[in-house]
Design a protein around this nucleic acid. Structure first.
Length: 679
DNA sequence: TCCTCATAACTTTTT
DNA sequence: GTTATGAGGA
């Protein structure tokens, strides 16, 4: 038993216990900075190297792609080459794979497409038209979130219809029904379906269930506080046979209830597995004493919580600072200038600094400040690559290649670039397709089409289909990448992008983006070739791409030299020596919508997450005025500031202002301050 | 059928 | 200050 025992070295007693407890249900409550990821990875390494568990039998599910990737990397180092056999991924990717294999039992053919939230919304709108429900009266967004919530607690259309409580829900029930039909017709699943169908699959199908239970003897769930009902049910089904399920989480870091994450899952876990062991990791190795104290005192304002006492042996460190700035521009300038100064004077690394904010919109002022000063930065998350218009368009072409029933993709690209096929034609096409009971694309070369519409239009449709069909032939052989490239050049997509861009620079950027997409396809094809001996096929690559698993990978080059900009949500699971938290104001943090919905506790947790990312220094900023809808509004300091230990905080007043505006700024700022005091 | 210009409505966080 | 929608002209 000496082999691999070094895995336990350097772990504290609680960590060691967590690593060694591999049989039976286990709940690990892991405070921030308590070495959670270390424990998970070491636990897996311990199973494999000491207890001789086959990597093949272990599954670890996380919440985000980023977390999954990081875990994979660490495991590679700890476990070695056998780590490839481990199943590590997000719930969604795990389910997507399961459904690709066995989805036929729940009505999904292997070539199914995954619809993202934009597709979802488009489909909801269609469903509302079918149900003859006015989109002005019932906002499609609201309908989508209602349906999404239903799915995340495993309520299907029939059940939903049975339990409707009011007029809105009655309308939603009808839309839900049509929506599901549309999904089926498109051979598609939305994000929530991935989970719900996977659960259905395991629940209704004994053979499949037993196969998966037999495959996975050990299951780990990371960020358990962020799982929703469907995800928890899935985990339970997988672990039903052996009960070797380990969940790791921290209720204080639950920040996704708006996505139906349910902290009660932790209680359910203790109920469902009465014999579960519970281990708390309470020693913080990350932050200074003062930072941890600030975090602890803040979160204690949340009242009833699972008992947990964080402590650290680290130095007390520097006080938390709070800076006021005149407006959001000055706020951003201050932060960036400060970072520049510390890099210059104290040899701080840019990559050691993270700037965090509540809403994505705040990143713009920051980006401008960075650009202006030549500060290198990386936007974590932000307007996501795959959501960019040109990337999505190209993706839709690819989707249509794989799944000709994908009407959403068809509609998106049929006239992009221009093919002079307008709404009138499409309307007729849709009617025809409905009559024939087939997809839009399929019906494009129907010879009878020229009788129900302008023959010229019919010809254009037919030409389009013939062209794409020709491309499809080359997609699945050796030259699939070439087919993609031809697709782009054939339609002079580059020219179209340039023409439509507001400036040549943006046009070039857009073009760069699509080639970046092509490059990641190329990389994935190569990778697949390595793994599966030559069997590279575009089809499976495109399906993975839709799950957006790999797209962000390439952006991660030399981060060490770049300031990291991100939302507080995106910061979860990360740590940085220096953290700047912007917009610490009422209406922002806590956010206005949360105040209205009376969900301050979650905002507090969000701030708690942000604070506990910091290792050495933490600086917060408040802009005294902020532009909203083009109008300047005075702000109030966040209530959370008062909830932190005042003795550990330095208030630094106005951080910076333009010289010519100085007097005005001071005057206005003090008025704003006075107002803040009066409130 | 496409394009331009005006106006309205909106903004939380993400797989 | 944006992005989604709509009316009206080419």
């Amino acid at each position: 038993m000496t082999l691999g025992m070094e895995i336990l070295e350097g772990l504290n007693p609680a960590q060691k216990q967590a690593v060694e407890t591999i049989d039976g249900p286990l709940l690990i409550i892991a405070g921030p900075g308590s070495g959670k990821t270390r424990v998970i990875t070491h636990r897996i390494a311990y199973m494999v190297r000491v207890r001789d568990v086959l990597p093949y039998r272990i599954a670890a599910v996380t919440f985000t792609n980023k977390a999954a990737r990081e875990m994979k990397d660490r495991l590679e180092r700890l476990v070695g080459p056998h780590s490839d056999a481990l199943t590590v991924g997000t719930f969604h990717s795990f389910c997507a794979q399961m459904l690709r294999r066995d989805g036929s039992h729940v009505g999904l053919s292997p070539s199914y497409t995954i619809f993202d939230s934009d597709d979802q919304l488009a489909l909801i709108k269609q469903a509302m038209e079918l149900a003859d429900i006015d989109a002005k009266q019932f906002p499609p967004q609201a309908v989508r979130s209602t349906i999404s919530k239903a799915k995340s607690i495993l309520v299907d259309a029939q059940t939903f219809a049975r339990n409707q409580q009011n007029y809105f829900e009655e309308r939603c029930a009808r839309i839900y029904h049509h929506y599901e039909e549309l999904l089926a017709r498109n051979n598609a699943a939305d994000f929530d379906d991935l989970l719900m169908r996977a659960v259905q699959l395991l629940q209704d199908n004994q053979e499949v269930r037993e196969r998966y239970q037999e495959r996975y003897h050990y299951l780990m769930v990371d960020e358990f506080q962020d799982t929703n009902v469907a995800q928890y049910r899935l985990a339970r089904l997988l672990a039903e046979e052996r009960h070797n399920i380990c969940v790791v989480g921290d209720p204080d870091q639950s920040i996704y209830s708006w996505r139906s994450a349910d902290i009660r899952n932790i209680l359910s876990f203790q109920n469902d597995y009465a014999d579960a062991a519970t281990i708390s990791l309470e020693q913080n190795y990350r932050s200074t004493g003062k930072i941890l104290e600030a975090a602890k005192q803040l979160i204690s304002a949340n009242g009833i919580r699972l008992n947990k006492d964080l402590f650290t042996d680290n130095d007390q460190g520097k006080p938390v600072t709070i800076h006021e700035a005149y407006d959001e521009g000055e706020e951003a300038s201050f932060v960036i200038d400060e970072i520049a100064r510390l890099v210059r004077e104290e040899k701080m690394e840019r990559g050691d600094c993270a700037v965090m904010y509540r809403v994505n919109a705040q990143s713009r002022a920051l980006e401008e400040a960075c650009l202006h000063r030549g500060m290198k930065y990386r936007l974590v998350g932000g307007v996501r690559f795959y959501q960019r218009r040109e990337v999505k368009d190209l993706m839709c072409y690819l989707r249509l290649l794989v799944n000709p029933n994908d009407d959403n993709a068809f509609l998106r690209i049929i006239n992009t670039p221009r093919r002079e096929i307008g709404p009138a034609t499409l309307d007729k096409l849709a009617t025809w397709a409905l009559k024939r009971g087939q997809g839009l694309y399929h019906v494009c070369d129907d010879f009878a089409l020229s009788e129900v519409m302008n023959p010229k239009a019919a010809e254009k449709l037919q030409k389009f289909k013939a062209w794409l069909d020709a491309k499809r032939q080359f997609c699945f052989g050796q030259n699939s990448l070439q087919a993609v490239q031809e697709l782009i050049t054939d339609m002079d997509y580059e020219g179209w992008l340039m023409q439509n861009a507001s400036s040549p620079r943006i046009g070039e950027k857009n073009i760069e983006n699509i080639w970046q997409l092509v490059r990641s396809i190329e990389r994935m094809l190569e990778k697949q070739e390595d793994e599966e001996e030559g069997a590279s096929d575009l089809e499976s690559v495109i399906k993975k791409l839709v799950l957006l698993d790999m797209l962000e990978q390439q952006q991660e080059e030399d981060d060490s030299d770049r300031v990291q900009l991100m939302t507080l949500h995106a910061s979860k699971g990360l740590e940085f020596p220096h953290v700047y938290m912007m917009g610490v104001e009422e209406e922002f943090l806590p956010h206005r919508t949360s105040i209205e919905e009376d969900n301050i506790v979650e905002e507090r947790r969000l701030m708690y997450v942000g604070i506990t990312r910091a290792r050495e220094t933490l600086a917060m900023t408040q802009a005294l005025t902020r532009k909203q809808y083009g109008e300047k509004i005075d702000t109030t300091a966040s209530r959370f500031v008062d909830e932190m230990p005042q003795e550990d905080i330095d208030y630094l007043g106005i951080g910076i202002q333009k010289d010519e505006a100085k007097e005005d700024a001071v005057a206005e700022a003090s008025i704003a301050n006075l107002r803040a005091l009066l409130d």
